[in-house]
Design a protein around this nucleic acid. Structure first.
Lengths: 119, 119
DNA sequence: TGAACATTTGAACAACTGTTCATATATATA
DNA sequence: TATATATATGAACAGTTGTTCAAATGTTCA
């Protein structure tokens, strides 16, 4: 859709000035997509559960699926998404692959979310 | 699916103990859903753009749609979702309805997300 | 090497989500 | 009241997402 097609409201000068200022300062389209994509990863209860479990201890796929009572395939698919988003890292030890949180942002973001909910 | 149906891995004692401990400490299922639902709201670029715009100034629906070059209907639908999640509040002034961020958590969560991306 | 175990992967399907279009509601003003 | 403007809402449609099932990959150990 073209910008010209957007219907404009007849707002006072103050509004149109504010709108213009925002348009200039607006970050690249890509930044918004990247940020939304990050939060999308947090937006699934299975993934939240996995992240919560990994806050306590490093675990292998099999342990996580036992702890959350879900199939190992479902967990593996979700771990892949978490890994792609750089929220978890992993290491292989023999047959098992151990996952852990990749940095402290993960816990901070979740805690901020909890703060907002418990208000 | 029943917990009994989950295939168990023959991990060492350490693992099963960790799994058991986590199961006991695990918050109510509902908490995970609530948290995921909150992040789901942040997981859309249109809504992120709206929140970003409102960080600068209170704006009416018409201004936001002009600033983001999107139809007023699409913006209104998204504002409804943001309102339900308590991320924005609004006030009516004549014909216009002005929206603003409802509390400081919004900015904090977004900033943590940006921190994670710019790493 | 072959058997057993842990994890990953791909295809398929149902469920969910965001935008559009048409229409309804609400407010101000002539 | 009638008209114009601002916002909200419902239905519909395409696109996306999470789980399941089946099969492949990788690792250990006899």
């Amino acid at each position: 859709m073209k910008i010209q097609d957007i219907e404009m409201c007849d707002s006072e000068f103050v509004h149109t000035e504010a709108v213009g200022g925002i348009k200039e300062k607006m970050p690249a389209e890509e930044s918004f997509y990247d940020l939304a994509d990050l939060f999308k990863v947090f937006g699934d209860s299975t993934r939240i559960k996995i992240l919560w479990a990994l806050e306590n201890a490093e675990m292998c796929v099999c342990d996580i699926s036992a702890a959350l009572a879900m199939t190992q395939s479902a967990i593996s698919h979700q771990l892949r998404i978490l890994k792609q988003a750089n929220l978890v890292k992993n290491r292989r030890d023999g047959k098992a692959v151990y996952y852990s949180l990749s940095d402290s942002h993960v816990k901070l973001i979740i805690d901020q979310g909890l703060d907002h909910i418990n208000e």
